[in-house]
């Protein structure tokens, strides 16, 4: 569980996060949505500890980030997994080496135990026959699977994903969304996903936080977001023709 209490973040004159408070529960797929420049990435990086908020608190299972020393913060990061927008795989390492990397760095497992564990998560993300290939030799969807495998190999308590299906075709994007959703429930992970993909919102958004200009404009579930009257949210959600038509059908059905 991650509890965010009134966090602010400023870069120079630019007040990016303006007092955001929310709660991300374990075992649920939490989404942060909003337009580009709304503060989503800064918010996610603040949750990861890559940015320190100027004001406010972030609590990881009741542990205050601001009260941790650098060693405790580094140890906390070992409980986190992150799937970056561009996958951020180490391009000099093979798929297997990438997945084994967190284990090599922090676990006391033997080489064969590490390989077994890595192969287990590689199978879990439905990736096969790619162990010896370099990231540059596999497709974007496969890279995302490797990134997910690397993020969960150390049994993280917290999983963060930055635009996990950007650059993927709609079918692969749904597969990746479902995979993250399944893993979240299966391992009771607190998952926070930064996205602006409405398909993800519809499919896996168990909790959605909508940001606008650094504020939390709205929060709720994927069922509630299609019924809300909040103008900023509806403007965002129904910005595509497809969703406009879906809404029209919903209204016609209701009436």
């Amino acid at each position: 569980m991650i509890e965010v209490k009134n966090i602010h973040k400023t870069f120079g004159q630019n007040h990016v996060l303006k007092g955001i408070s929310t709660l991300f529960e374990a075992g649920k797929t939490n989404l942060i949505i909003g337009q580009s420049g709304s503060g989503k990435t800064v918010f996610l990086k603040s949750l990861l500890g890559l940015h320190t908020p100027d004001e406010g608190e972030i609590l990881y299972s009741d542990r205050r980030y601001s009260e941790m020393d650098s060693t405790q913060r580094r140890n906390l990061r070992k409980e986190m997994g992150m799937v970056f927008q561009g996958s951020a795989l180490f391009d000099s390492m093979t798929v297997l080496e990438n997945v084994m990397f967190p284990l090599k760095m922090f676990s006391k497992m033997s080489e064969s135990e590490m390989k077994d564990r890595a192969n287990f998560v590689i199978n879990r993300v439905n990736l096969s026959n790619a162990n010896d290939r370099l990231p540059s030799e596999i497709s974007g969807g496969m890279q995302k699977r490797v990134a997910i495998a690397r993020a969960i190999v150390n049994n993280p308590k917290y999983l963060f994903c930055d635009e996990p299906n950007s650059g993927l075709d709609p079918k692969t994007a749904i597969v990746i969304d479902n995979l993250i959703h399944e893993i979240t429930a299966e391992y009771n992970i607190t998952t926070v996903i930064n996205t602006h993909d409405m398909n993800s919102v519809m499919e896996i958004g168990e909790k959605i936080v909508f940001l606008k200009n650094g504020h939390k404009e709205w929060e709720g579930t994927n069922k509630e977001i299609f019924k809300t009257d909040n103008a900023a949210v509806t403007d965002f959600v129904y910005s595509s023709e497809l969703f406009k038509k879906v809404r029209q059908m919903y209204i016609e059905e209701r009436d």
């Binding site: 992150m82 927008q85 795989l89």
Partner: peptide
Amino acid sequence: VTEQIDALEVMGVN
């Protein structure tokens, strides 16, 4: 640029 350094930091690697 490709966020590999961020990936190291997030993992708790110096």
